[in-house]
Nucleic acid binder design. Structure first.
Lengths: 359, 359
DNA sequence: CTGAAAGCGCTAACAT
DNA sequence: ATGTTAGCGCTTTCAG
């Protein structure tokens, strides 16, 4: 096997300089047509493929944006996406554990999609990186060295690491966290979402007792919980402690059922939490929304195919991804552009789990 | 804004050589602990992030695998994923056209997922690249220069281009095409799948007239159509010309309905075709499976949530992605490993669109 | 319109 | 255990 051809080989074979070869590919109009054709011909014949590492090094940028995702499966391998009964056992699986968890796209998938499309539209490539559990600094730093800008989901990367990276390339955090100005941030109006949900449950359905169901170790969940508490207080209702998505959630709900202490409504931190809760309630024989109303947050697909369908707040997920890419591209081209925080509006999606009837 | 720090800066500030800095990051055990700590400290203070382009150039490899995907939306912007009636209008959309098409994951998404997970597990990063419509050679060649191996979906990239690239890095094509040994190939047993479907429709339900519904410009569709024709012939049944997924499919089906010439069963090239066909039949008032049976191919999620659920053949999609990554990693490490074609087994998924009753 | 040549930042022999 | 140094392949300024 011969050495892979370089600009030198092409230049030599074509009887031109390496500069001309380079221009032929990067700036064709600078090269006389006949020369250009010659070079392309030779390149073709030799099997020349430009080496991006060399180019990026010379240019000082990569044309790649990174998305540091995660897979919640890895963190919670024994937790399934509850799909409100529609998850079909006959949707044959390959036997790999993750295969059965990720039938439905989740929040992250939809954000990723928006990010991808915007990158491609703008001529950027995209590295999707993911790690299991706690992220070692080296992994993320490794990734940072490969890209012109980086989008990360919160709570995945230690803050000092993020600050370190943000000194070198633009970084945008997706979703809430609140402090610092290390990086840009794209967030949604969580408080408004929660307020609209409660307003609907309270004003429209007359519900008076609420419990929040929190997700584990999740910044968004915390934000929404705070908003929930504030809203409950504002309405002069009784603030009860939050329930928590965990292996013990089923027990807790069973206990509430036993003592007749079920609230009127369960406001869940996310659609995924809502779906899991729904599943548990089903198993306990508690009817939704008959015995208890339930709401989610996000607007993922699974919540629209469950039984009943989940009343929720829709995030503009792909728009979040799109904006993230947009912002990174701008800042990577001009370091003077300051970090910014964008807060996107949400929208209440009234379906059936709150007690409304299907249209 | 100061210049971004390099190994030289770190080495200088720490009073060591660049080699020591490099070793500290790449081969820590080669460096005395105290030195290592010193270097890491200085690097931290300076905000040093290793430049991957330089490293890759020096090393001669990138640690990145590419997946050249596509988005069928771009090619057919006016064609929706029909979801058998479950696609909820209230699943609020952002207004961007693609947003409403891609609610359900498709074949490609699931393959991609397997690819990603395997890459991450093996310590590779992954570049997902996509283009609209016909792919210019430069785009794919561009990508090829960035990665150690490339997986492509068929019919997206001109064959000469693929051959050109395959001279430099390992390439694997996902799904059927058949000719050449330019690249490796991962395929499924399409013939077996089609045979099992027809066997079921014929043997179990006694159907005798079949029409194939082909997808446009799709290698898999062609392969399955051939297998379909062969099987029909083998059983001594009447071979009728294929229908074709297109804006005119509705007319054609209506015509068949009008003349009482509907077949017993429609064997569709994919689940997506089946879902679209199902949608059309619905609108024509033709009952499925009452008036006509229908089958799909792939095993995507949308086919499991439609009404009725689609009887289909399940491809091990994430396994396809996983194997692709596996194969590329092996070949990128050892150019002596020859190309190979892997054919994976499929599995019949009997649901309701064939006429069976729900379990 | 084309060529010469100086980097880009890092790695990995090889030397000490 | 650490330092020296020659590349890795391409881009781009400056000359011609």
């Amino acid at each position: 096997m011969t050495r892979t051809p370089t600009v030198y080989d092409v230049a030599h074979a074509a009887g031109v300089s390496t500069a001309t070869v380079s221009y032929t590919f990067r700036n064709p109009s600078r090269v006389k047509e006949s020369t250009r054709e010659l070079v392309l011909d030779v390149a073709q014949r030799l099997g020349y493929v430009p080496n991006a590492s060399a180019r990026n090094l010379a240019r000082g940028r990569t044309g790649v944006l990174g998305l540091f995702a995660y897979d919640f499966l890895w963190d919670a391998p024994d937790r399934r996406i509850p799909a409100g009964g529609v998850l079909p056992e006959s949707h044959e699986l390959t036997g790999e554990p993750y295969d059965e968890f990720r039938l439905f796209p989740v929040y992250l998938d939809e954000v990723q999609r928006g990010f991808e499309l915007e990158c491609w539209r703008r001529g950027f490539e995209i590295i999707i990186s993911g790690r299991q559990g706690a992220v070692e600094d080296s992994a993320i730093s490794e990734l940072a060295g490969r890209v012109d800008g980086l989008a990360v989901f919160p709570r995945r990367v230690a803050r000092p690491t993020l600050q370190h990276i943000a000194r070198r390339i633009p970084v945008v955090e997706l979703a809430s966290r609140g402090d610092t100005d290390t990086c840009s941030r794209i967030d949604i109006d969580n408080a408004d979402g929660v307020a609209q949900l409660i307003e609907h449950l309270h004003g429209k359905h007359g519900h008076r007792t609420f419990r929040f169901v929190a997700a584990d170790d999740n910044a968004d969940s915390d934000t929404r919980h705070l908003a929930f508490a504030a809203e409950i207080t504002r309405l002069g209702l009784v603030a009860l402690p939050a329930l928590r998505q965990s292996p013990k959630l089923a027990e807790e709900l069973a206990a509430l059922q036993g003592t007749g202490a079920l609230p009127d409504a369960l406001v869940c931190a996310s659609d995924q939490v809502a779906l899991e809760t729904l599943d548990i309630l089903h198993r306990l024989g508690i009817r939704v929304p008959g015995d208890v109303a339930i709401t989610g947050f996000d607007g993922i697909l699974a919540g629209a195919t469950s039984q009943p369908r989940i009343t929720t707040v829709r995030q503009p997920m792909s728009e979040i991804g799109r904006l993230a890419a947009d912002l990174l591209i701008a800042r990577s081209a001009d370091a003077e552009i300051p970090n910014e925080t964008i807060v996107l509006a949400i929208r209440l999606l009234v379906r059936e789990s709150c007690g409304c009837t299907p249209a």
